[in-house]
């Protein structure tokens, strides 16, 4: 596996900020600390989950908090910064508005899973894990489409907002038609 460098983490964040018209946190020390956190999470979990949230270490459970998280867009729109404040709006970047802590938008039910995920994981370990067992119980990925722009995603649940057109979760509908790929 290639080594994850701080520079890679930074470049990825910068590219993403550019794409979406955001800026990275203007405080160099604070930014450095966030990037180091992302790097650390990518090293220990295999994906860069939010440095300011407790991750479970299980991809399916943490998917919504992998940076850029599902909650970034609505948080930047409402508070000017995402939860960890890696991504900020122009006025905060320029120092015209103060960067303040952002309240947690992620549902409690999802947060709670980080506290017992490993217990479930360690129980499942001895047996050879099949595809079914690897997933959190009670959920199965489905195809969802955004009724506003047509974006399609394969997940247990639709995203918090559409990453393309920013429509809310409620705008997503399940695609129930059976698609035969053969």
């Amino acid at each position: 596996m290639t080594e994850i460098t701080l520079e890679m983490v930074k470049q990825r964040a910068e590219a993403d900020a550019r794409t979406y018209g955001y800026y990275l946190n203007p405080d160099p020390k604070f930014l450095q600390s966030l990037l180091e956190g992302l790097k650390r999470n990518e090293e220990r979990y295999g994906y860069p989950s939010c440095p300011c949230r407790l991750a479970s270490g299980k991809f399916e459970i943490d998917r919504d908090i992998i940076c850029p998280c599902d909650y970034r867009d609505p948080d930047v729109a409402e508070f000017g910064a995402c939860y960890c404040a890696l991504y900020v709006r122009k006025d905060l970047y320029e120092g015209k508005t103060e960067v303040k802590p952002v309240p947690e938008r992620r549902p409690l039910e999802k947060q709670s899973k980080a506290y017992n995920a490993a217990t479930t994981a360690s129980e499942a370990k001895p047996a050879t894990p099949t595809k079914e067992e690897a997933k959190p119980s009670g959920s199965k990925p489905k195809l969802w489409y955004c009724k506003q722009c047509g974006y399609v995603v394969f997940r247990d649940e639709p995203p918090y907002t559409c990453p393309i057109c920013k429509a809310k979760k409620e705008m997503f509908a399940e695609i129930k038609t059976r698609i035969d790929f053969t």
């Binding site: 604070f30 600390s33 180091e36 956190g37 650390r40 440095p51 300011c52 960890c84 802590p101």
Partner: peptide, 10 residues
């Protein structure tokens, strides 16, 4: 705190 969190560090 979280070891990776910048707000926690502050």
């Amino acid at each position: 705190a979280l070891s990776t969190c910048a707000w926690c560090r502050m």
